[in-house]
Structure formats: C-alpha cells, structure tokens
C-alpha cells in the first residue's frame, strides 16, 4: 500500500467516525430520554352553565409529562397553537417532585413559550419523573358554543431546555 492509499483509508475512517458520532448524538436528543407527553390527546367538554353567571368549567388530569434528568439544570416551557380560538384553556403541572411548577398558564393562540416547570435539578441519581398535566377549560355565555363557533383544537407543545 502506498502513501496515497493509506491517506485515503485514513480519510474514510475519519468520515465514518464523524458520522457515527453524529448518529449517537442525535439518538441522545430523541424524544425518549428528553421529554414526552403521555396518554395522548385530550378533550374537555363544557356542557352546563349557571343562569346569570358563567358556563361551568371542566378539568382534565389524564395527561402526564415525563422528562429526564440532564447534565445541566433545566426547565420546561409550554406554548400552544389554536387558530380561531374561542374559549379559554389553562394548564398547570401537579405532583412535581423534580423542579418547581409555575402557576397555571393561560394557553392563548400564538403565545410565546413560557416557563412551565423550572429549576429541574441536574444532580442526584433520579432518571425521570412524571408529573400530571391539569387542564382547565372555561367559557362565558358570550363566547358562544361549538355549534356556532367550532371546537378549539390546541396543539400544546412542551420543551425541555437548559435553564
């Protein structure tokens, strides 16, 4: 093997190793091992109200949010997209044991991502934790009904990031 052949093989080795490293990095940032919404899509149905008052609010605590311990102190932010939103929806994390839950966040179409859980520790031996997502839907009589206004369909996104 001459010099040129050996350098070409060395080059190929570098490229292969770089590719493998990038694949390993990408796997480390995949959904599993970072943050995950559990128990799928949710629906809240407002069906009653009080004459002279408001519609009766509805609460849903089925969904959970699982997040993993990372190398740096982290936080979770939340945002939503709901074009043509008519009614009100808020969310708060309950049962938080790793980090500090923010007060209930009003989910408004087009909002910037806001803090949802902060000060998630990087120290310790814990691997992941799964607090509950408590959604509250409310409406006024003046906001109408789904037959006339349509349903509100929110795409709620949670992001785990360095604090």
């Amino acid at each position: 093997m001459n010099h040129r052949q050996s350098m070409n093989r060395l080059t190929a080795l570098f490229v292969g190793a770089a590719f493998l490293l990038i694949v390993v990095h990408s796997t480390g940032t995949a959904q599993v091992g970072t943050i995950q919404v559990r128990n799928g899509d949710q629906t809240l149905n407002i069906v009653a109200g009080t004459a002279g008052g408001s519609m009766t609010s509805v609460v849903n605590t089925t969904a959970q949010l699982r997040y993993w311990r990372k190398a740096a102190i982290a936080k979770v932010t939340v945002t939503t997209s709901c074009p043509g939103q008519s009614f009100s929806l808020s969310v708060v994390a309950t049962g938080v044991t790793r980090g500090v839950a923010a007060p209930a966040v009003n989910l408004v179409n087009g909002m910037l991502a806001v803090d949802f859980i902060t000060s998630i520790p990087s120290a310790g031996t814990w691997t992941s934790t799964t607090p509950t997502l408590r959604y509250t839907a409310s409406a006024t009589f003046a906001q109408g009904n789904s037959a006339e206004m349509g349903n509100d369909v929110h795409t709620v996104t949670y992001t785990l990031q360095v604090q």
Binding site: T29, D41, Q42, G49, N60, F141, N145, V153
Partner: peptide, 15 residues
C-alpha cells in the same frame, strides 16, 4: 434537549 406535544380539544355544548 427536546419537545413533545399533543392535541387538546375544548368543546362547548349549546346551553
């Protein structure tokens, strides 16, 4: 680190 999302639907009956 990563993101995850789901859909949350709010329906309001005629009252």
């Amino acid at each position: 680190y990563g993101s995850s999302f789901h859909n949350v639907t709010v329906t309001v009956a005629t009252v």
